[in-house]
């Protein structure tokens, strides 16, 4: 059975860009451990020489002409949905 520590949970949260609130951490530790324990049963299967299936209908690359598709949406409409914007750009807190 997979043992998930509190530190593992915090590490996974960091990988997932989630700042968990304190009350959720214990529950997630139990649940994630149980779920990983459940899915681990796949290790019993012999998959030697079996190809993985990432795409079920056998599509490979789907090409199209390199032309603009009109999505019927303007820059102004999209910028209007950003929580903060300035001079036609989306504004975020200081990165560096």
């Amino acid at each position: 059975m997979t043992q998930i520590s509190r530190d593992d949970v915090l590490h996974l949260a960091q990988l997932s860009s989630l700042e968990l609130n304190e009350t959720e951490i214990d529950g997630l530790q139990t649940d994630i451990g149980n779920i990983l324990g459940y899915v681990e049963q796949l290790s019993k299967l012999d998959t030697n020489g079996v190809e993985p299936t990432y795409q079920v209908t056998g599509l490979n690359n789907v090409w199209r002409e390199d032309t603009v598709i009109n999505y019927g949406v303007t820059r102004e409409e999209l910028l209007a949905r950003a929580p903060e914007s300035d001079q036609n750009q989306v504004k975020v807190p200081k990165v560096l």
């Binding site: 949970v9 996974l12 949260a13 990988l15 997932s16 860009s17 989630l18 700042e19 968990l20 609130n21 959720e24 529950g27 997630l28 649940d31 994630i32 779920i35 990983l36 975020v92 807190p93 200081k94 990165v95």
Partner: peptide, 23 residues
């Protein structure tokens, strides 16, 4: 920016969303 991502996602997702993202 890291705090913005982390807090936004904590507030915007329900526990099941977080559980699945972390798995």
């Amino acid at each position: 920016l890291a705090e913005l991502y982390g807090r936004t996602r904590d507030e915007g997702f329900v526990t099941e969303n977080k559980r699945r993202i972390m798995i």
